[in-house]
Design a protein around this nucleic acid. Structure first.
Lengths: 151, 151
DNA sequence: GGATATTAGTTTGACATTAAACTATTATCC
DNA sequence: GGATAATAGTTTAATGTCAAACTAATATCC
């Protein structure tokens, strides 16, 4: 038995926008990453991309960039290290920190892969005009920051 | 060593919009679901919500609504069934199909929970005006459908 | 009507993900 | 300077997630 309710307009608008937001995020991510070779996950790609464009990072910094927990990063970096794409280096000044850096193999790998994913994402976003993409980005930025207390 | 590139404007716009889209989706989802009680995951909530508002569904239909694989749904429904929130019923006309339905306990549970999550989402989206929410929904809809071949 | 193909769901193996408990290291504070 | 806090990372247990191989049931086709 399906259940239907009268909802306040604000709630209807929010639920509708939320569903569409989530579906767009999932659809685009899935389609754009079809170019990833067998055995490379989206998270691994994201970690390698961050290291390529920002240089070596502490694991906690990497977790911050990817919006993931540090426990998660332990596993992701484990797997990347196992595959010879990154190395861990203990920071000698403060031995609690571990710096993650691309190996030569890892740099070569992500340097070749990134342009393909970028092209794929660009193709996906060609569903929108550049102006629409800018609008979308701005609305998402405001939404991501959350409701701001009145100034 | 960070790497910077000259990019075509279309690529810059797409990458920027993509990052903001993903961050917004993750941030809003995380914050809005903080109201979920201990032990209920976002996926379980989504499955129960679909059953509440659409009535009993086949597992494959549920997978379609949630954009998840059927293998995934097997586990999700397993856990919901274990907790007494849903039941599986073999379809007698075509015994390949399994219908998933809320139990009385499950209906009571999700009926009480949904309004809280809806209110939480509505609060998150109050970062945007209703017009902005409508714009966001429309842009996401176009993006989710993907680039359409020229008519 | 029996071989073949298709479809719904399950299983398996690998990775992702979190919260919470834990270890090791550094900072703080009396 | 020694007890206490705080911080970075790891581990553990539970769930999510997929692709691919599989089972069971139904449909198709000669």
């Amino acid at each position: 038995m399906a259940t239907r309710h009268q909802r306040p307009p604000a709630e209807t608008a929010a639920l509708n926008a939320y569903v569409k937001l989530m579906r767009a995020a999932e659809s685009v991510t899935t389609r754009a990453h079809l170019v990833l070779p067998e055995g490379v996950t989206i998270t691994q790609f994201a970690a390698l991309e961050a290291l390529l464009h920002r240089g070596p990072l502490f694991q906690s910094e990497l977790a911050g960039k990817l919006l993931k927990s540090t426990g998660n990063l332990t596993l992701v970096v484990d797997n990347l290290e196992r595959d010879g794409l990154v190395v861990r280096e203990r920071d000698e000044t403060d031995r609690r920190f571990i710096r993650v850096a691309l190996t030569a193999k890892g740099r070569k790998f992500i340097s070749a892969l990134f342009p393909q994913v970028a092209a794929s994402l660009t193709h996906e976003f060609s569903a929108l005009t550049l102006a629409e993409q800018a609008t979308l980005a701005e609305l998402c930025r405001k939404l991501g920051r959350g409701p701001q207390p009145a100034a």
